[in-house]
Design a protein around this nucleic acid. Structure first.
Length: 549
RNA sequence: UGUCCGAUAGUAUAAGGGUAGUACGACAGUUUUUGGUACUGUUUGUCUUGGUUCGAAUCCAGGUCGGACAACCA
């Protein structure tokens, strides 16, 4: 690696470990629990783990941390795999913590045999009480000094299904007075007579996270086990199990999780939004889930770029949504096919235009290297234009239409506003213009110059579509930090549906998964709800608006 | 009244004893048949108090502030 590029702290650790010969091959893992859909915070972890092995060689495993049968589903396994691949990464091995249930059980038996684990028949409440508090030590109970034989026997009975859920648990025997609460004889196995999505009914005891994660890392020879800050205090336990078991010493490193403004990131809260119907599903375009971003029209490249830009560090952070928006605009600016669509239409009549069947040529993307080719755009006497592009009494520095003002119609002619029509309520219903035939785009000999260019769609050629405009899901910067229920801070205007938007004919051929720029209006993509005769577009993000009207 | 983690412009992130830099944002301008893009410029920062040192964002000590830790969740 070059010395010029600054490294984050994890890259530094890895470079040192590789240089010193501590490890020959870098092995990382991405270890989601299959209990929900992946979100942009996971994307950060995915890009980190997979990115590291792309950078330094080695490989990354996908391991599902499926030790709690009651929360996990195959549906989630599938969606999580799809999301990782969509982001552009491929794991070396697809693994499951549940693959190691036999081995993990063996480790537990080993611990018992070493006098380092015991079966505790206390209730959950008793155990919590005996645990003490962060400032007061815990107290050992009478089960702590059971004989190895008795523990072995009891644990076998637990495994055999002789006990009801909650009747007893297996605990590691460490230190009830430790300043680290997690070291106060943590529970390592609990009884759950539950059906597991992969092991079915083979087990009725399941290992806890702390007893499964480090050992799973170790079994897979993970060299650098990267997780978020909330696991810092688990590291002592992680190391303790590995040391007592004498197995491959994987090492855990923690970085700060991603927080994004105007949204929530916890699976629990996202699940609530889904379950309570506050969003249309995990892939609602307003959701910070990877599937939501995908449906919204974000590209994998833009999400990866975002993850690259936010950096990796150990301090708490709250990233501005504007950075994510910058990343998708930057990507789509290069890729998106330009087209014209009028979201809030008003009719413009070119009173002196008598042509019929004129076809104009539009460049598809001035920002692409090959300009994206061209397309045909039908023109006619009557057009739809954007209501906001006309002002009866123009503001200062108004470049668009107003009585007496001239603008260019994109790809077409310069027109001058002569008149407008109002209805009984005083709303402008029609704008009358004259055009300058010699000002045709590409062959303008008129000598006229105008400051404004507006988009339009020919009324008789226009197709229609539904357009969904999205805004931030929450109206406060950090819903997590607010008092009370986070759902009280949902933005009531996060979704606006425009049922009849006029689009140029070329847009009728829009395909799923491609980005379009509706000129001057933003980036859009076809939604999966679309059918051949009912097109639905999502607005990915608006264009940056420099107009300070 | 504990232990652990952290603190650099508005937001992130560099600088590992030697000129505090970069990006996003904001603001201003140039270019422009998208008030977009591109380009240029401006703006604002080392939590605090001491110490070590010729020299401290960096090392040390105390303080302050923020976060994590008492699920048979992960």
């Amino acid at each position: 690696m070059s010395e010029e590029k600054s490294l984050n702290f994890i890259e530094e650790i890895i470079e040192n470990d590789l240089k010193s010969g501590k490890y020959e091959t870098l092995v990382t893992r991405f270890p989601p629990e299959p209990n929900g859909y992946l979100h942009i915070g996971h994307a950060k972890a995915i890009c980190l783990n997979f990115g590291l092995t792309q950078q330094y060689g080695g490989y990354t495993n996908l391991r599902f941390d499926d030790t709690n049968p009651v929360t996990e589903k195959t549906e989630y396994v599938n969606s999580q795999q799809e999301d990782i691949q969509w982001l552009g990464f491929q794991w070396k091995n697809e693994l499951y913590a549940s693959d190691y249930f036999d081995q993990l059980h063996g480790y537990a038996v080993q611990l018992i045999e070493k006098g380092l684990a015991y079966v505790d028949e206390s209730t959950a409440e008793e155990i919590a009480a005996q645990k003490g508090t962060p400032t007061e030590p815990g107290t050992p109970n009478q089960y702590r000094d059971r004989s190895i034989e008795e523990n072995l026997d009891l644990f076998a009975k637990m495994k055999a299904g002789d006990f009801e859920d909650g009747a007893c648990i297996l605990r590691a025997k460490i230190d009830m007075a430790s300043t680290n609460m997690l070291m106060r004889d943590p529970i390592i196995y609990r009884i759950k007579h539950a059906h597991h999505h992969r092991t079915g009914d083979a087990w009725c005891i399941y290992p806890m996270y702390d007893f499964a994660h480090g050992q799973s890392d170790s079994i897979e020879n993970i060299t650098h086990s990267i997780c978020t800050l909330e696991y810092v205090s688990h590291r002592e336990l992680y190391d303790w199990f590995i040391a007592q078991l004498g197995i491959f010493p994987s090492k855990q490193y923690e970085f700060a999780r991603l927080n994004l403004t105007y949204t929530v990131m916890s699976k629990r809260k996202l699940l609530q939004l889904v379950n309570e119907g506050l969003v249309s599903g995990w892939d609602d375009p307003r959701m910070p889930t990877i599937s939501g971003l995908r449906r919204r029209g974000y590209t994998p490249e833009s999400v990866r770029e975002f993850c690259e830009r936010i950096g990796i560090a150990k301090r708490e952070n709250l990233i501005e949504l504007s950075l994510l928006e910058f990343c998708i605009r930057e990507d789509l600016n290069k890729k998106a096919t330009r087209a014209m669509a009028v979201l809030d239409p008003i009719k413009l009549v070119i009173t002196n235009y008598e042509g019929d069947g004129e076809i104009l040529i539009g460049e598809n993307n001035p920002e692409a290297e090959d300009k994206g080719g061209t397309r045909e755009i039908p023109f006619s006497k009557e057009l739809w234009i954007e209501r906001e592009d006309f002002m009866e009494e123009p503001a200062k520095k108004w470049f668009r239409l107003a009585p007496g003002a001239m603008v260019r119609l994109k790809f077409a002619y310069i027109v001058k506003c002569d008149d407008f029509v109002k209805d009984a309520e005083g709303n402008v219903t029609e704008i009358h213009c004259t055009y300058f035939p010699e000002s045709k785009s590409g062959s303008d000999t008129s000598g006229l110059s105008v400051k404004g260019t507006i988009h339009w769609v020919s009324t008789k050629h226009a197709k229609t579509a539904q357009v969904r405009l999205y805004d931030r899901l929450f109206s406060v910067v950090s819903p997590d930090a607010e008092e009370g229920d986070f759902k009280d801070y949902l933005n009531p205007n996060s979704k606006e549906v425009l049922s009849k938007v006029y689009i140029e004919p070329a847009l009728a051929d829009a395909t799923l998964g491609t980005g379009y720029q509706f000129i001057r209006k933003g980036y859009f993509c076809l939604d999966k709800d679309s059918t051949a005769d009912h097109l639905v577009f999502n607005r990915v993000v608006s264009l940056k608006d420099g107009w300070k009207g």
